[in-house]
C-alpha cells in the first residue's frame, strides 16, 4: 500500500503531454497547483477550485476531468494532457484554429479547459451533434463570449472530422 504522510513531500512522477515529469508534493497539493507551480505548466487555469467553472479541465488517461479536484499524488504513473500538449510548436490544431476563426475566445482564461473537453469528445464521439456538444460545454463557464463562437467552432470541426471518416 502506498501511504503518504501529511505535511511531508513525496515524489510524484507521471507523463505530462508525453514527457516524463517528476516533482515533490504534499498529499494535499492540488494537481492544478502542482501543474502550475511545480511544473510551470501555466496553461491550465484555476477559476473556482470547487469543480464548477471548468477552467482547470485537463485530461487524465484520456478523460477530461477537473484538475482542482485531484491531488498531485494521485497522478503517479498516469498520463496527463494539458493545453500545452495540443498543437505542434508552430501551429494550432483544428479546434484551436476554429476557435480563433469564430472568435470563440476573448480573455482566453476558460479556453484551455474547454479545449480539453472538446478534444476528448472529438476523439471518442466525432459524430457528436450540436446538442451533445452543448451538453459537454455546459461543464464550462465562459463569461466573455456568450458561447456563440465556441459552439460554432466546435460544430464546424466535428462536421469536418466526421465528414472525413
Amino acid at each position: 500500500m502506498r501511504y503518504l504522510e501529511a505535511g511531508k513531500r513525496h515524489a510524484v512522477r507521471f507523463t505530462l503531454n508525453g514527457e516524463l515529469v517528476e516533482g515533490e508534493a504534499e498529499p494535499r497539493l492540488l494537481l492544478s497547483d502542482f501543474l502550475r507551480q511545480t511544473l510551470g505548466a501555466y496553461g491550465t487555469h484555476v477559476g473556482c477550485e470547487h469543480g464548477s467553472c471548468g477552467a482547470c479541465t485537463i485530461r487524465v488517461d484520456g478523460k477530461a476531468v477537473r484538475a482542482c479536484l485531484l491531488y498531485a499524488v494521485q497522478m503517479q504513473d498516469r498520463a496527463v494532457t494539458t493545453v500545452e500538449g495540443l498543437a505542434a510548436p508552430d501551429g494550432l490544431n483544428a479546434l484551436q484554429a476554429a476557435l480563433q476563426k469564430h472568435h470563440g475566445l476573448q480573455c482566453g482564461f476558460c479556453t484551455p479547459g474547454i479545449l480539453m473537453s472538446l478534444e476528448q469528445l472529438l476523439e471518442e464521439e466525432p459524430g457528436a451533434d450540436e446538442a451533445r456538444i452543448r451538453d459537454v460545454l455546459s461543464g464550462h463557464i465562459c463569461r466573455c463570449t456568450g458561447y456563440h463562437g465556441i459552439v460554432q467552432a466546435a460544430v464546424e470541426v466535428f462536421g469536418e472530422v466526421f465528414g472525413k471518416r
Binding site: R2, Y3, L4, P27, R28, V73, Q74
Partner: peptide, 10 residues
Amino acid sequence: MKPAAFDYAC
C-alpha cells in the same frame, strides 16, 4: 481555498 493537511492512503 486549499484543503487542510491529510495523509493519503492508496
